[in-house]
Amino acid sequence: MSRFPSIGAHAQHPAYGVLRKVTDTASVMLADNPSIMTLDGTNTWILRAPDSVSCIVVDPGPLDEAHLTRVAACGPVATVLITHGHPDHEAGARRFAQLVNAPIRANNPSLCHNGAPLTGDTTVSAAGLRLKVLATPGHTADSICLLLEDDNTTAVLTGDTILGRGTTVVAHPDGKLADYLTSLRLLATLPPNTQALPGHGPELPDVTQIATAYLAHREQRLAQVRTAVEQLGGSPTARQVVEVVYADVDRILWDAAEWSVGAQLEYLRTED
């Protein structure tokens, strides 16, 4: 679950509106949409080979004209890619595509515009780069990651499957815990020192370590949920389980926790 320690005075965040280079081929611009769920805001990624004029934009972010205009200024844009269909990542995509005259591609066909859907066997070649699409459902049914390999670095854009801080909500009922665990196991098999370039929060040096830690966290939570179900008896609601398992967590996070607990209860009913 995303954790956002403070949203006070967010307009002063030094990263808003600033293009920050992260690798030789990946730069990030932070959208000004902080919240409990989005941390400091949504990361919009701009990808291009060092000798490329055009770029790939991943997750244009919310419908924020100022943010979209600043990202558009990084163009020309060859294509727009969406990691999943939550509004903080894609609500601005259609407007952005108009600004830069580029196609939109996503796993969910309804989000695509003048471009084919992205599936687990898709490779995107643009802006001098090759991106391998990894199907990583769980946070949502349509979540994907994008594996970027070049001569100097290997990185994976993780959307909300892995965050730069905290852990991810399994957005039940669209998101499924069984799918999410499978996706984490896939990410844990990537080469060591593959950087994680997340949809929220800072980049991380080794996605395999983080995916392994996420798996351990999910197993711990599942054990806590099992115990809570036994204590409560019958068929407790997700909210009742949250009140037990997350008793020491700020209540402002309980609504988000309820999604993940709903996914855990479904998992226990169908997979255990």
Rank of each mutant, 00 (worst) to 15 (best):
A106F: 03
N101S: 10
V28G: 03
Q240L: 10
E258I: 10
G199K: 15
L47Q: 00
A257L: 05
G92W: 00
L47F: 05
Y246S: 04
T237E: 07
A93F: 03
T44I: 10
A106H: 00
R251T: 14
A91V: 09
T237S: 15
A263N: 05
A238F: 11
G234F: 04
A93V: 05
E219G: 15
G166R: 07
S110H: 08
L129G: 09
G92V: 00
A127S: 08
R269M: 14
L19I: 06
L177I: 07
V241Q: 09
R20C: 08
G115V: 08
A256H: 12
N108P: 01
P236W: 12
L134H: 05
A196P: 04
G41Q: 01
P202A: 12
S52F: 00
P137W: 08
S52V: 00
A216Q: 11
V156N: 07
G41A: 05
H89Q: 12
L30C: 04
V71H: 02
A97T: 02
V80R: 08
Y180V: 04
H200Y: 13
N114P: 05
I104F: 09
I210E: 14
R130G: 08
L68E: 02
G115P: 04
G262K: 05
G166E: 03
A257P: 04
A9Q: 15
P76T: 00
G8C: 09
V170S: 03
H13R: 13
K132F: 01
I144N: 07
P173I: 09
I210A: 13
G85N: 03
I252Y: 10
A31M: 01
V22N: 01
L148N: 05
G85I: 06
G201C: 07
A211Q: 07
I162F: 03
A228Q: 09
P202L: 09
A66R: 14
R130M: 13
A171F: 14
T25L: 09
T194H: 04
D179G: 02
V22F: 08
N101A: 14
P103D: 02
R130Q: 15
L268R: 03
L39I: 13
I7T: 15
L68W: 07
P191G: 02
S235R: 15
T79L: 08
R94L: 08
L181T: 07
L131V: 11
P109V: 00
D272Y: 14
L30S: 07
L177K: 08
Y180N: 05
R226L: 06
H200Q: 14
L253T: 07
V22S: 04
Y267K: 07
V244F: 00
